[in-house]
């Protein structure tokens, strides 16, 4: 009797391994797609710019842009990109860090929540809308009020000389600053939140004021993370296209004045790609893309490495 029951025991077959293997292969393939994509982007840009690479070589980087005579060089765009991005970063960084301090160290919880939401909303505004607002609201105001004042106060500096056009490199820097403030703010907030509360409490217990707590307990040790946040912002700034194209004036001449119109690598592509009919012209624009890609990759890898070291604790009590 007992033996019969034991014999009748149902033995389930082990779960099939085939499903797992197939699923693993499928997901692995998709994960590896990022490498394929990265390679594809590099390859297509390289292929596209081959003609220009062969024709101009390294001198492409230090030559002027002269499509009329078939001579192409990225110098004005490299300068424009560099100046507008770095200026944008210089405007955005102090504002973002101060905002992040306010949000992590000073603001009461009921202020923090809506302000964080608003900063995120600013990040969600499409570039083209910022550009539209830029041309019709921001640029006219900058041209009529702050720019003449700047020229009056420090016009002896060569960068503030010359006619004020409105659509210029400085306006592009301001627009870029508005666009990268949210990302730097949120990264800086992560960095400050990663500082353990015990460190702040210790400083308070020693009689430090709020600012001293921030300076001694929070800033110390977050330098690396803040540098990473700045790099991330710079990466965004370098590649910003639409809003910049709309306010920078799209001049291909190099000028020492910030009040003169200019171009960036991205804005030159956006502005000239559809009019570039001959092969060399198009190829030169592809090479601008290649230069832009390489610059942003370096910046982003730097940001990735710097920020990777920062890990914010998952703390639900702080927003």
């Amino acid at each position: 009797m007992m033996a019969a029951a034991a014999k009748a025991k149902i033995v389930l077959p082990p779960p099939s391994k085939a499903g797992d293997a197939a699923f693993r292969l499928l997901t692995c393939g998709m994960a590896l797609m990022v490498f394929v994509l990265a390679a594809l982007v590099g390859w297509e840009l390289f292929q596209g710019s081959k003609l220009s690479l062969q024709r101009f070589g390294w001198s492409f980087l230090i030559h002027d842009w002269d499509p009329g005579n078939g001579n192409f060089g990225a110098l004005p765009f490299i300068c424009g990109t560099f100046v507008s991005s770095v200026l944008g970063l210089m405007i955005a960084l102090p504002l973002s860090v101060a905002t992040a301090i306010y949000l992590t160290e000073l603001a009461p919880a009921w202020v923090r929540r809506p302000v964080v939401a608003l900063v995120e909303m600013l990040a969600a505004i499409p570039s083209v809308i910022l550009g539209l607002w830029g041309i019709y609201v921001l640029v006219p105001w900058l041209r009529d009020h702050p720019y003449p004042l700047l020229q009056k106060l420090i016009g002896w500096l060569p960068v503030f000389r010359g006619h004020i056009y409105g659509q210029c490199i400085l306006s592009a820097a301001v627009i870029i600053a508005i666009m990268i403030v949210p990302i730097i703010t949120s990264m800086a907030r992560e960095v400050f939140r990663a500082v353990p509360d015990s460190q702040r409490e210790a400083a308070f217990a020693l009689g430090a004021t709020r600012w001293e707590v921030t300076r001694l307990a929070v800033f110390k040790g977050s330098a690396r993370g803040m540098f990473g946040a700045a790099m991330l912002g710079l990466g965004r700034a370098l590649g910003e296209t639409m809003a910049v194209t709309m306010v920078i004036g799209n001049s291909t001449d190099l000028s020492a004045s910030l009040f003169a119109p200019g171009s960036t690598l991205a804005s030159a592509i956006a502005n000239q790609f559809s009019e570039a009919v001959d092969d060399t012209y198009r190829s030169a624009l592809f090479e601008l893309g290649l230069v832009l890609l390489l610059v942003t990759i370096v910046t982003n890898i730097l940001a990735h490495l710097l920020i990777g070291a920062v890990s914010a604790p998952k703390d639900a009590s702080r927003v």
Binding site: V41, G235, R236, G239, E240, T296, I297, N300, A303
Partner: peptide, 8 residues
């Protein structure tokens, strides 16, 4: 890839 400019 995330940081690659959209114009690229």
């Amino acid at each position: 890839l995330n940081g690659t400019p959209s114009i690229v």
